[in-house]
Simulated assay, not measured.
Amino acid sequence: MIDFYTNPKSRGVITRWMLEEIGAPYTTHLLDYQSTMKSPEYLAINPMGKVPAIVHDGQVVTEAAAICAHLADAFPEAGLAPAPEQRGAYYRWLFFGAGPFEAAISNAGFGFVVPEGRERAIGYGRLEDVLDTLEGHLSERRYILGEKFTAADVYLGSQIGFGAEFGLFPMRAGLSAYWERIKDRPARVRGMQLDKEADDEN
């Protein structure tokens, strides 16, 4: 049993995509930012009072990247994680997405620029370094790990898609081409439709 806590206008869309990729049944709980997301019942699940979160067989998992990794492990038949002994690059890019990439594009979206000479004091250095690193990696590969789509593509791909949609960073040709390769996956299309229907109901 998977209980999925989300709002259709949140990072919950990443988890929805991942849930659709694994194909397992789940129950969706729609939360409102101003009320149910801050309710005692939900704060008992995620004291941060934010979404997404899942409860899977009694285990609480928050943070979109962690949820993607957990579901890939919990449902190996979906083939969304490499074998355990081959996960170095997989973990590298999942954490790159959750760390340097998300921090850099979030700061850029709010207009924050790291003061010159202080790049070593922040985890990502400069936005340009992050984009160069990711674009350089993807320019030689169809997916994050090469020819096989994984949970790392769900997470990093979603972040790139957010950047394309909301103009969070200067879109690079290589990143745009990668997004075009993955954005129409059936699981993502289904997830987007479910979120649209949920949003229309609210």
Rank of each mutant, 00 (worst) to 15 (best):
F4P: 10
I67L: 09
Y155K: 04
L30D: 12
G88Y: 02
S176M: 09
M171C: 04
E128A: 15
M18Y: 06
A121C: 13
Y90L: 03
I54Q: 11
G125D: 13
G136K: 00
L145T: 05
T27N: 13
F110I: 12
K196P: 01
L168C: 00
L19V: 08
T6I: 07
P84W: 09
E77Q: 15
V113G: 05
Y155N: 10
E165H: 05
I144V: 15
A198Y: 12
L80H: 12
L30E: 03
G12L: 10
I2M: 14
R92H: 13
A64R: 09
C68Q: 04
F75P: 15
I160Q: 00
N202G: 15
E21F: 06
H70F: 15
G79W: 03
A103V: 14
G163W: 01
T133N: 14
T15Q: 04
G111M: 07
F4N: 05
A104H: 10
R87T: 08
A65G: 15
L80E: 08
R142I: 00
T62M: 14
P25I: 02
A65L: 03
V130D: 07
G157I: 03
R92Y: 14
V61Q: 07
L94W: 08
R185S: 03
A177R: 07
S39F: 09
H70Y: 15
R190G: 07
A152C: 04
M48Q: 15
G58S: 11
F166W: 13
Q159R: 11
L145N: 08
H56M: 07
S10M: 06
P25D: 15
